[in-house]
Write a protein that binds this DNA or RNA. Sequence first.
DNA 1: GCCACTGTTAGCAT
DNA 2: CATGCTAACAGTGG
Length: 291
Amino acid sequence: MPELPEIETIVRDLSPKIRGLTIESFKLLFPPLLKNEDLCLLHKIRGKRIIDLSRMGKMILVNCQDDLSLLFHLKMTGRLILCSRTAPLDKHTHFLLRFKSQKSELRFRDIRKFGFLRCLRTSEAYLIKELRLLGPEPLEIDSSSFDKLFRGRKARIKGLLLDQRFIAGIGNIYADEILFRALIHPSTSVSQLDSRQRKRLWKATRVVLNKAIKSRGTSIQSYADSQGRRGSFQNFLLVYGREGLSCRVCGERIKRFRLSGRSTFFCPCCQEFKKHKDHEDKRGRQNKKCL
DNA sequence: GCCACTGTTAGCAT
DNA sequence: CATGCTAACAGTGG
């Protein structure tokens, strides 16, 4: 569940709360959570101070003293929770961090166990496969660099938006919302997109992700922040999860199909596959009127 | 009980 | 290489 806006929310909340704290101890309750051979490095984090937290795509990087970092990926059901040390541990808590002279601790919970933890040398972060292969940040890339990403590509646009090597942080919900706002059908091959559509896509990406961050993310089934609070962007979704309901823009029934194995929602009128030209023309006329 | 579904992505096949 | 399916897991709802 957690995509860029949810991870960003967690990082912004958590960072001021645990920055500066010293790690006293940890417990790895489900050892397979830790990927690769990071265990001996993990032991070294005891006694280190937390410098800051950052987000890279959908991952959370906890930067500690002495060139050590923890990298978390929440995948679908992972959660980072800041709670009291005395709160009962449930069976889905796989890792926890205790801090010196603090009553609170940080817990990693993950029902489906897809998530992972890595411990690495901060200076070697770029060597870590999960980070090295990560595409550009959608809120940082400028319009012309975004444009260049499409060169020589011909996959369907939604598949590319979901590909973390192409662009980082976008998942199923936001891919659908972005494509709706950009008036682009999810199955469109990117080789078919003209520069105006690519510009619209870039803009829609920024608008959707920024709005979602303002709403503190989308809580549909299980997403909650580090204090267990839900986001509110589910109240503003225009297509995701709205199969059969009427489009909030044109009233047409929202359709659903499977694309790249993922549930995909779109408005057959606003995002009509073969009628991009119509939208262009309408928009063009509107722009002319404005001028 | 069984089956279909779920917001991710690595790994494999094409 | 680029692209597309599926499995990994556990829970929920029909």
